[in-house]
């Protein structure tokens, strides 16, 4: 029996490394190619770090970068303002509405972004009428886009604590609803809020469909536009954007790992 197990372990190890090496090459090659491609013109990377020169040589790209960053920040903010109080409120006071809220939040999963654009076009005619055609107005659409991911993160965070008891304790000590949200619930779901925000930022930085079809600009639209005139620069920016998303999501997975390993004081027994 021991011989069989040893032989199997050896076979599995061989299989594991074959799969890992073959697929590893497939996944790493494009990244290496991006590095090679973007260094063909030696002036590319220095230009990318030098912001004044970048905005002078590639104004559209600089505009795309700034609008994507502000879109990401504003979307994360709007998502949190909209979602966290509602999720807490529904848990505390309107449990019968939870299914409805969950359904609405997960609905964008079955509606591809390209379909959402079709429906959003008339809505954005009004948005443009009220707020103008700024690329920041995309924040409204992006908040809908990130709803499923953000909702799941926040809902998981809320499930891990006993919101009701916490709120009742705070209320019985004389706290108002504002205090309950801001000083009792929020600190307890900090890591869930953080992962929702990280996911939002990563998704918004990678968004292309809605921005391009509603004729607004962001990083991806700018990269696509740049690809037609300066291929090396567009590959360099792509690589940077990718690395940024990589770091963000890696931080996120580390965050998730830590949350699992340290039990919170109000953890419910496994449901």
């Amino acid at each position: 029996m021991a011989g069989v197990t040893a032989r199997r372990a050896r076979k599995q190890r061989a299989f594991r490394w074959t799969v890992l090496i073959v697929l590893g090459v497939f996944f790493v090659l494009p990244l290496i190619a991006m590095v090679e491609f973007s260094t063909r013109d030696p002036s590319t990377w220095p230009a990318l770090v030098d912001w004044p020169e970048l905005s002078e040589r590639y104004p559209a790209l600089a505009e795309g970068i700034t609008s994507s960053l502000s879109q990401a920040a504003l979307t994360a903010l709007l998502m949190l303002v909209l979602l966290v109080p509602t999720a807490v409120w529904v848990r505390l006071r309107l449990p019968q509405l939870r299914r409805v809220v969950e359904f609405l939040c997960l609905l964008p999963l079955t509606i591809p972004a390209i379909v959402l654009v079709v429906g959003l076009a008339p809505v954005y005619a009004w948005v443009t009428y009220f707020f103008g055609g700024s690329s920041l107005t995309l924040v409204f659409a992006y908040t809908v886009l990130v709803l499923p991911y953000a909702y799941r993160a926040i809902d998981a965070g809320l499930s891990a604590i006993d919101v009701k008891t916490l709120a009742e304790a705070a209320r019985s000590l004389g706290a108002g609803w504002g205090t309950v949200m801001w000083r009792v619930v929020l600190p307890n779901i900090r890591s869930a809020v953080l992962s929702a925000a990280f996911l939002t930022v990563a998704l918004v930085l990678g968004e292309f469909t809605i921005a391009s079809l509603l004729n607004r600009t962001n990083l991806q639209v700018a990269i696509n536009f740049l690809g037609k005139s300066s291929a090396t620069m567009s590959v360099a920016v792509s690589l940077t954007a990718l690395l940024l998303a990589f770091v963000l999501l890696l931080l996120l997975s580390l965050l998730g790992g830590r949350r699992k390993s340290t039990p919170t004081p109000f953890k419910e027994p496994a449901a």
Partner: peptide
């Protein structure tokens, strides 16, 4: 590998297209 998979599954769109153009 799981962390990398989490990142690469989100990797799409224009950046991915350019990655393959460079390759």
């Amino acid at each position: 590998v799981t962390a990398a998979a989490g990142v690469l599954a989100q990797f799409g769109g224009v950046t991915l297209a350019f990655a393959f153009l460079a390759t």
